[in-house]
Design a protein around this nucleic acid. Structure first.
Lengths: 202, 202
DNA sequence: AATTGTCAATCAAGTGTTTAATTGGGCGCC
DNA sequence: GGCGCCCAATTAAACACTTGATTGACAATT
């Protein structure tokens, strides 16, 4: 759906269009013409704001990362911030499948693109630190066993969560199972959420 | 390194060349001409064996999956097949980084390509069943607690292992940590391997 | 008048695929 | 044994189309 006539914020519109197209077609099928069309502008206008396709992609990376990071910040106040965090990630990639796909595309491209690699690594490390911080706090206030290695456990949690962001996983219906087991191991298992059912009928 | 003059098995040579190029450049940069060049044949010869690029890719999928599956089959004989399995996966993606990249590419493409999606899902389900089978056997012979939910635990293990196949993860050095914690939770932790140190200096 | 934003038209370099031609080995037949 | 014939394998040279990027003109705003 080309959003014609977005008078102001052409730049932002182009980035969002590129983000959407990237999720839809992947880097393989990302065409500047399509992006311009989806933003409702001429191809030359795109090159007016982004001199090269690479620059446009940089904008998309920025957009995706901000989208990812903001929702990652722990919210809530009790010591079950940890469980909230797990479910936030699950909900994030569930409610916005595009994000998971874009993250995957960026992860793969980072193998060939040092610039993207740097950003991904930083985000990853930040995520790791966040989870480790939550774990340490939980250990301190007694909701987790004191002998827990917070660093290795954080690595485990991030690894598990990251696999959720892959498209393949969600189709199997195994992701909820995996998360439940993770919560159980952590000893923070909790009964059903209100609202939507999480029983997959497969 | 173009392997000129591979008189027989042109078909196989082309598939291996495509596999290599796919790992090197991704779907984004996969060019039939490059594949032909790497196999040391003319572009038309490629189309003699594979009428279309899509057919060539199918061959690559087959190749990658076989490569993946064979190493996945549990070997060894004792009840610590489970630990062997975890480490086999780690070793596999560590010794052959191309495989991890290709798997990632295929996983992403499966979001747009039903044919690939089917193969990936089947491989995934097979992997899940394998791990679950190992878990059940371990429960039966007493090396794992009987109240363990083998299905959910298998989902968790596969999720964790799958994240290892992503290029991003390995760079952080967190993958060994994650695996150690997983083994610890399962209660199958084992002393240090001989050889390389696994202490990350961060 | 100068600056900014936008577009139709165009270009050069690819890009998957096809065509027409060549090579060489095997097979039947005299 | 020599001869014509076929056919799998291979290639150089296009073909038709795509794709990122550029240009120059035109309007709107300052």
């Amino acid at each position: 759906m080309p959003q014609v006539a977005t008078p102001k914020d052409r730049r932002g519109a182009l980035i969002r269009a590129a983000y959407s197209k990237l999720a839809e077609r992947g880097f393989e099928g990302l065409r500047t013409r399509d992006v311009a069309a989806e933003a409702g502008v001429n191809i030359a206008t795109l090159h007016y704001y982004f001199p090269t396709k690479e620059k446009l992609i940089e904008g998309v990376v920025e957009h995706a990362m901000s989208r990812f990071r903001t929702t990652l910040e722990p919210h809530g106040s009790t010591s079950d911030q940890l469980r909230n965090h797990l479910r936030s990630v699950q909900r994030l990639v569930q409610d916005e499948p595009d994000l998971g796909i874009v993250m995957g595309e960026l992860a793969l491209r980072s193998a060939r693109d040092p610039a993207i690699a740097r950003i991904m690594r930083e985000t990853n490390e930040g995520w790791h630190r966040t989870v480790r911080g939550l774990l340490r706090k939980a250990v301190k206030d007694g909701s987790l066993e004191p002998e827990l290695d917070t660093d290795e456990t954080a690595a485990m949690i991030v690894a598990a969560l990251r696999s959720l962001t892959l498209p393949m996983a969600s189709s199997g219906g195994h992701s909820e199972q995996a998360l439940r087991q993770l919560e159980r191991w952590l000893g923070i298992g909790a009964p059903a959420r209100k609202g939507r059912s999480i029983r997959s009928s497969n």
